[in-house]
């Protein structure tokens, strides 16, 4: 088990290097720091001196890959690649273009993100699975058909509609919850209800349909027939046997996203004014702050790989046949 984990972590390294190279190519080669400086300075203030000054201020005044002027190993280390790109491996995110420490921002902003994303994920999973199980219980009836039609209709509606509709209906018309905003501590509760509800509803169509297909596939298998033949009630068949055996595909889809919950949702957070990592990223995109975007891309990739590892480990919990070695 430990061996397996170690091997997987080692396997992750070349992937992260690949991610690093892609982001490096995107942010430093296709667009040179000179281009970035020009964008940030604005058309009126572009002079060679101003560009140089901007690059020095933000630490971009080094060559990309090879430093002729440095001594010894400094030829390789005093470069943008090592200082800006490889440094990410040590989780050294550096400073944003507005001068603030990215690591500190991430540390404070991940909690609001988590406060929305984790409940949305858990409630969503429970709702989707129960809804899908209900449809499967009533399979081949009009109730099932209605549920499927409803799912298709729900997944054909833009996610933005749920947000805007929810804000208008619950927030503005009925005054049940604030339209947007956030407060630390217990006060956050009333701000969280709407984003979580919207998050759950907007995934309902897609996910329930997916889970329903999973369950239907299981329900036609022999062991289910055996279970029924033994005289087990439909409830036991569905919850213990079908749900249990459908756990592997459910986990495949679900566990991998758990680590990424830290990053929050770009859209939900910016619509509801939640000061989390999602809105941080969106603001960075809109302000063209490449340092932040680069950090978030790298962090997201790390979390994804952690998620893949967790997925494999979780298989051992639900399926005794799976042994990791």
């Amino acid at each position: 088990m430990l061996n397996y984990v170690i091997r997987r972590v080692l396997y992750a390294i070349p992937i992260l290097i690949g991610v690093n190279l892609i982001t490096f190519a995107l942010f430093f080669v296709v667009n040179t720091p000179d281009d970035m400086a020009r964008i940030h300075l604005g058309a009126k203030h572009v002079t060679p001196e101003a560009i140089e000054r901007w690059k020095v201020e933000h630490g971009y005044d080094r060559p990309l890959l090879f430093n002729q002027e440095a001594e010894g190993t400094g030829k390789l280390t005093e470069t943008l690649f090592v200082n800006k790109s490889l440094a990410l491996f040590a989780l050294d995110f550096g400073l944003a273009d507005d001068g603030r420490d990215i690591a500190r921002e991430i540390g404070t902003r991940m909690w609001p993100s988590l406060a929305i994303a984790l409940p949305t994920f858990l409630v969503g999973l429970a709702v989707y699975i129960s809804f899908a199980l209900t449809l499967v219980f009533f399979r081949a009836t009009y109730l099932d058909l209605t549920g499927v039609v409803l799912s298709v209709v729900l997944m054909s509606i833009s996610g933005l509609f749920y947000i805007i509709g929810g804000q208008y209906l619950l927030g503005k018309l009925w005054h049940l919850v604030p339209v947007s905003g956030y407060a630390p501590g217990w006060g956050m509760f009333k701000f969280l209800i709407l984003p979580i509800a919207v998050g759950v509803v907007s995934g309902l169509g897609d996910s329930s349909r997916f889970y329903r297909t999973l369950f239907l596939e299981e329900i036609h298998k022999d062991y289910v027939r055996t279970a029924r033949a033994k005289g087990l009630s439909e409830r036991v068949v569905l919850f213990r046997h079908v749900l249990g055996n459908a756990m592997i595909p459910i986990l495949t889809g679900a566990v991998v996203v758990i680590p990424r919950l830290f990053l929050g949702s770009l859209i939900v957070e910016s619509f509801f004014g939640i000061p989390g990592l999602g809105s941080y990223t969106i603001e960075a995109i809109q302000a063209q702050d490449f340092a932040i975007v680069r950090s978030m891309v790298f962090l997201g990739s790390v979390l994804y790989i952690v998620g893949l590892l967790l997925t494999d480990l979780s298989y051992t919990l639900v399926d005794p046949r799976v042994r990791l070695e």
């Binding site: 070349p14 992937i15 942010f27 770009l266 995109i285 975007v293 680069r294 994804y304």
Partner: peptide, 29 residues
Amino acid sequence: QYLYTTLNSIPGVLLIASAVLVAQVYIET
């Protein structure tokens, strides 16, 4: 497999956003 695992591990929206940002800068300059 290495290629698509690497691409896959970058959050989709962020990869798209970075690439579009880069393209935007290119068009602007």
